[in-house]
Design a protein around this nucleic acid. Sequence first.
DNA 1: TAAAATCGTTGACCTACATCAAGACTTTTA
DNA 2: TAAAAGTCTTGATGTAGGTCAACGATTTTA
Lengths: 190, 190
Amino acid sequence: MYDKLLDHIRQNVPGTGIEKQILKEYFTPTLFEKKEHFLKQGYICKFAGFVIEGCYRNYMLSTKGKEVNTGFGFENWWLGDVGSFVNQTPTLINTQFLEDTTLLTITAKNHLELLEKSQCFREYTNKLRSTATAASVSKLSGLSESASTRYKVLLEKYPKIQQRVSQKQIASFLQITPEALCRLRKSEIP
Amino acid sequence: MYDKLLDHIRQNVPGTGIEKQILKEYFTPTLFEKKEHFLKQGYICKFAGFVIEGCYRNYMLSTKGKEVNTGFGFENWWLGDVGSFVNQTPTLINTQFLEDTTLLTITAKNHLELLEKSQCFREYTNKLRSTATAASVSKLSGLSESASTRYKVLLEKYPKIQQRVSQKQIASFLQITPEALCRLRKSEIP
DNA sequence: TAAAATCGTTGACCTACATCAAGACTTTTA
DNA sequence: TAAAAGTCTTGATGTAGGTCAACGATTTTA
C-alpha cells in the first residue's frame, strides 16, 4: 500500500527518495465506504488523503442547493482542500466517494512536520500544487463550449471514466440533466 | 498619484506604512489608451500595474476563438497574471483597457526587490493574493445559474458597472449575446 | 429474498437563448 | 465635419437542453 505512494513520489520527483518507514510513520490507512463524505462545505479540512484504490467526486452547491460536480478523482490522486487544510478555514468543497475507497491519510500537523523534515516531500508537494492550479485553469477555459464539446473533452482526458462513474454524475459535471446526456450519447457515438 | 497607492496599502495593512519616496523609486506612471492591451495570451507578464484611473477587462479565448470576458477592473485594482509574473511563464490571460487608463507599473524584478525590502509591502501583496484566490472561487460558484441570476449578482456586486462598461462587454461576461442581455434588461428592470 | 429505491432510456412538450436582419443613435476616424 | 464603424434595440425564427412522466433493469435495503 505504501509502495503506491512511494512510486507516485518517485515519478514526480525523480532522482530523490524518501524512506518507506517515514511514510508508515506519517500516513494512516483509512477505509471509506461508497457514499461517505471526506469533506463537507463549512467544515475545516483536517486531513489530506492519497487514493490507493477507489474513486470520488468533488461538488459544490448552487444557490438553489443543487449539487454540481466539479471533478472526479481516482487511484494516485490526492484529496482535500489545500486552502482549508493550510489555513484551517472552512472549505467550500464537498468530496464524496463513489466506490468503497482506501486512502492513506495524514493530518495537517503531520503534513507540516513532514514538509519540514523531507526535502523530497517538499518538492513533491510543490509540484502537485502547481499542477493542480493549472488544472483549475483548464476547467475555467472549458466554459462557453457546448455540452457536447465538454463531453468529448472529458472522454479524451479520462477515457475510462465511463466504466467508473455513473452517467448521472457525469451529467452533473457537464452541467446538463441525465436525460440530455443520454440523448447526446445516442446521437453522437453510434 | 502615488497617494492613491499609498492609501490602498494603508487600508489593507493598517498600522504599518511605507514611504512615498520608495514607491516613487519602484513604480512608474504609465498611460494606456482605450483598446490597448496590457497582457496577451502567450506572452510573459513583465509588469504588474495598479490602476490610478481607468478600467479594463480580462478575457480568455474559447476554442472557437471567441473572446469571453472573465472580469473587469477599475480604480485601485491590480492587473497582471501572478503566475506568469512570478514564474516568467506564458500567460493565458488577455487584459484590454476599456477607457484611457493611468497605471503605476512595476517590473517583476523590482517587485521582488521591493518584497524583500519592505515588510509592509510583503503583507500587502500576501493579502491581495489571498483575496484574489477567494474571488476566483466565487466566480466558479456562480456557474449553473441562469443568465438573469448572474446579471443580478453582477449588479449587486458592482452597481456602477453599467456607467463604465458597455452592454456588449457585460454580455460577454455573462456568456450571452448582447441581444439577449438587451431583452433581459427590458423584461426585468422597468 | 422480497420490497424499495435508483438508474438509464425514451417521448411529449416548453423555455432560454442563439442567430440573422435591419433601423436609430452614438462614437471614432479620416 | 463627413463618412465609417460600432452600439443598442426590436422582430422573426431556430435549437439545445430543461421538465415531467413512464417503464424496464439494476442495485440497495430490510
